[in-house]
Protein backbone atom coordinates (compact mmCIF):
# COMPACT_ATOMS: atom_id res chain seq x y z
CA UNK A 1 0.00 0.00 0.00
CA UNK A 2 0.99 3.61 -0.48
CA UNK A 3 0.92 5.96 2.51
CA UNK A 4 1.07 9.73 2.95
CA UNK A 5 2.11 11.02 6.38
CA UNK A 6 1.82 14.46 7.98
CA UNK A 7 3.75 15.77 11.01
CA UNK A 8 2.27 18.75 12.86
CA UNK A 9 4.39 18.87 16.04
CA UNK A 10 7.76 20.52 16.67
CA UNK A 11 10.87 18.51 17.64
CA UNK A 12 11.43 17.68 21.30
CA UNK A 13 8.30 19.56 22.40
CA UNK A 14 5.75 17.09 21.07
CA UNK A 15 6.00 13.39 20.29
CA UNK A 16 4.63 13.78 16.76
CA UNK A 17 7.97 12.98 15.15
CA UNK A 18 8.72 9.97 17.36
CA UNK A 19 5.35 8.49 16.43
CA UNK A 20 5.67 9.35 12.76
CA UNK A 21 9.18 7.91 12.51
CA UNK A 22 8.27 4.73 14.42
CA UNK A 23 5.27 4.28 12.14
CA UNK A 24 7.25 5.07 8.96
CA UNK A 25 9.98 2.58 9.85
CA UNK A 26 7.38 -0.11 10.53
CA UNK A 27 5.62 0.68 7.23
CA UNK A 28 8.84 0.17 5.29
CA UNK A 29 9.66 -3.00 7.22
CA UNK A 30 6.20 -4.33 6.31
CA UNK A 31 6.85 -3.66 2.62
CA UNK A 32 4.67 -0.55 2.21
CA UNK A 33 5.56 2.55 0.26
CA UNK A 34 5.63 6.10 1.62
CA UNK A 35 4.70 8.66 -1.02
CA UNK A 36 5.78 11.65 1.05
CA UNK A 37 6.09 12.90 4.64
CA UNK A 38 4.60 16.38 4.85
CA UNK A 39 5.61 18.84 7.59
CA UNK A 40 2.90 21.33 8.39
CA UNK A 41 2.16 23.92 11.08
CA UNK A 42 4.87 23.66 13.80
CA UNK A 43 6.10 20.43 12.26
CA UNK A 44 8.20 22.58 9.92
CA UNK A 45 10.78 23.11 12.69
CA UNK A 46 12.07 19.59 12.01
CA UNK A 47 13.61 20.90 8.82
CA UNK A 48 15.88 23.50 10.43
CA UNK A 49 19.56 22.73 9.82
CA UNK A 50 20.66 23.75 13.33
CA UNK A 51 19.22 21.24 15.82
CA UNK A 52 21.17 20.03 18.81
CA UNK A 53 19.37 17.11 20.47
CA UNK A 54 18.87 17.63 24.22
CA UNK A 55 21.02 15.45 26.49
CA UNK A 56 17.95 14.50 28.49
CA UNK A 57 16.67 12.57 25.49
CA UNK A 58 19.39 9.97 25.21
CA UNK A 59 19.52 7.93 22.03
CA UNK A 60 17.01 10.20 20.34
CA UNK A 61 18.46 12.24 17.52
CA UNK A 62 15.46 13.11 15.42
CA UNK A 63 17.49 14.82 12.70
CA UNK A 64 19.52 11.64 12.27
CA UNK A 65 16.40 9.48 12.12
CA UNK A 66 14.83 11.72 9.48
CA UNK A 67 18.12 11.64 7.60
CA UNK A 68 18.06 7.87 7.62
CA UNK A 69 14.50 7.77 6.23
CA UNK A 70 15.53 10.30 3.59
CA UNK A 71 18.53 8.14 2.63
CA UNK A 72 16.07 5.30 2.17
CA UNK A 73 14.33 7.34 -0.53
CA UNK A 74 11.55 8.94 1.52
CA UNK A 75 10.65 12.47 0.48
CA UNK A 76 10.50 14.91 3.40
CA UNK A 77 8.44 17.91 2.27
CA UNK A 78 7.98 21.11 4.23
CA UNK A 79 5.01 23.41 3.69
CA UNK A 80 6.60 26.58 2.33
CA UNK A 81 3.94 28.91 3.75
CA UNK A 82 4.18 27.34 7.23
CA UNK A 83 7.97 27.21 6.90
CA UNK A 84 9.11 30.63 5.80
CA UNK A 85 7.04 32.46 8.42
CA UNK A 86 8.81 30.36 11.05
CA UNK A 87 12.28 31.01 9.68
CA UNK A 88 12.74 27.93 7.51
CA UNK A 89 14.28 29.14 4.22
CA UNK A 90 16.25 27.51 1.44
CA UNK A 91 18.77 29.43 -0.67
CA UNK A 92 16.10 30.72 -3.06
CA UNK A 93 13.95 32.11 -0.25
CA UNK A 94 17.00 33.45 1.57
CA UNK A 95 17.88 35.51 -1.50
CA UNK A 96 14.28 36.54 -2.15
CA UNK A 97 13.86 37.93 1.36
CA UNK A 98 17.47 39.05 1.76
CA UNK A 99 18.13 36.94 4.87
CA UNK A 100 21.58 36.28 6.39
CA UNK A 101 21.65 32.52 5.74
CA UNK A 102 19.60 29.59 4.59
CA UNK A 103 18.21 27.45 7.40
CA UNK A 104 16.72 24.43 5.62
CA UNK A 105 18.40 21.10 6.27
CA UNK A 106 19.54 19.29 3.11
CA UNK A 107 17.35 16.37 4.14
CA UNK A 108 14.16 18.37 3.52
CA UNK A 109 12.65 20.41 0.72
CA UNK A 110 10.23 23.35 0.68
CA UNK A 111 7.05 22.66 -1.27
CA UNK A 112 3.54 24.04 -1.71
CA UNK A 113 0.34 22.64 -0.27
CA UNK A 114 -0.32 21.03 -3.64
CA UNK A 115 2.39 18.51 -2.76
CA UNK A 116 0.46 17.47 0.36
CA UNK A 117 -2.76 17.00 -1.57
CA UNK A 118 -0.87 15.34 -4.42
CA UNK A 119 0.63 12.80 -2.01
CA UNK A 120 -2.75 12.15 -0.38
CA UNK A 121 -4.45 11.78 -3.77
CA UNK A 122 -1.87 9.17 -4.80
CA UNK A 123 -1.83 7.32 -1.48
CA UNK A 124 -4.15 4.60 -0.19
CA UNK A 125 -3.89 5.94 3.35
CA UNK A 126 -3.24 9.31 5.02
CA UNK A 127 -2.02 9.37 8.61
CA UNK A 128 -1.64 12.59 10.57
CA UNK A 129 0.50 13.10 13.69
CA UNK A 130 -0.71 16.15 15.67
CA UNK A 131 1.48 18.13 18.05
Amino acid sequence: MIYALAVHGAPYSSNAAEHAIGFAEALLACGHQIERVFFFHEGVYHSLNSHVPPQTRYNVNLARRWQSLHSGGIELAVCIASGIKRGVVNETEQERYDLPSDTLSKTFELVGLGQLIGAIATADRYVEFPA
Partner: peptide, 18 residues
Protein backbone atom coordinates in the same frame (compact mmCIF):
# COMPACT_ATOMS: atom_id res chain seq x y z
CA UNK B 1 -3.28 30.50 12.45
CA UNK B 2 -4.35 26.87 12.23
CA UNK B 3 -7.86 27.37 10.88
CA UNK B 4 -6.66 29.57 8.05
CA UNK B 5 -3.98 27.02 7.16
CA UNK B 6 -6.60 24.27 7.21
CA UNK B 7 -8.96 26.20 4.96
CA UNK B 8 -6.13 26.93 2.53
CA UNK B 9 -5.46 23.19 2.42
CA UNK B 10 -9.14 22.52 1.77
CA UNK B 11 -9.11 24.99 -1.13
CA UNK B 12 -6.07 23.28 -2.64
CA UNK B 13 -7.76 19.88 -2.24
CA UNK B 14 -10.82 21.24 -4.06
CA UNK B 15 -8.62 22.75 -6.78
CA UNK B 16 -7.09 19.29 -7.27
CA UNK B 17 -10.56 17.89 -8.00
CA UNK B 18 -11.15 16.61 -4.48
Amino acid sequence: SVVLEQLETAMVAAAFDG
